[in-house]
Simulated assay, not measured.
Amino acid sequence: MKSEPDSSASEDLGADFAKALEQGWLPIREVARQTGVNAVTLRAWERRYGLIVPHRTPKGHRLFNADHVQR
């Protein structure tokens, strides 16, 4: 039995998320890839130290900009 291919993550997250990506915001998985810092660690630093406070979509997804990545 052949299954349908999975949709991309941005399609599953909705129009607000897709619009933010078009404006240059990055999801946490991309920040983790670019910086080499695990997403779990990024979330912990946000929670514990307020080091970086990402933008949130209406559904609560974290989005980061280039300044966040540089920091």
Rank of each mutant, 00 (worst) to 15 (best):
M1T: 05
M1Y: 02
S3I: 08
S3G: 04
E4S: 12
E4L: 15
P5F: 12
D6N: 06
S8F: 01
S10G: 01
E11V: 08
L13S: 02
L13C: 04
G14H: 14
D16T: 03
F17A: 04
A18V: 11
K19I: 05
A20H: 04
A20L: 13
A20K: 05
L21N: 09
L21T: 12
E22D: 10
Q23W: 03
G24H: 08
W25R: 04
W25L: 14
P27K: 05
P27C: 12
P27A: 08
I28M: 14
I28P: 04
E30D: 15
A32I: 04
R33P: 00
Q34M: 14
Q34R: 15
T35D: 09
G36H: 05
G36T: 07
V37C: 09
A39F: 10
V40M: 08
T41Y: 11
T41Q: 10
T41L: 12
L42S: 06
L42R: 15
L42K: 13
R43F: 02
A44L: 13
A44I: 12
W45E: 08
W45Q: 11
E46T: 12
R47W: 05
R47D: 01
R48C: 06
R48D: 12
Y49L: 11
G50L: 06
L51Q: 10
I52Q: 09
I52R: 13
I52W: 00
V53R: 13
V53D: 10
V53A: 14
P54Q: 10
H55I: 01
H55S: 05
G60W: 06
G60N: 07
G60I: 08
H61P: 00
R62Q: 03
N65G: 03
A66V: 06
A66D: 09
H68P: 02
H68E: 00
Q70E: 07
R71G: 03
R71P: 00
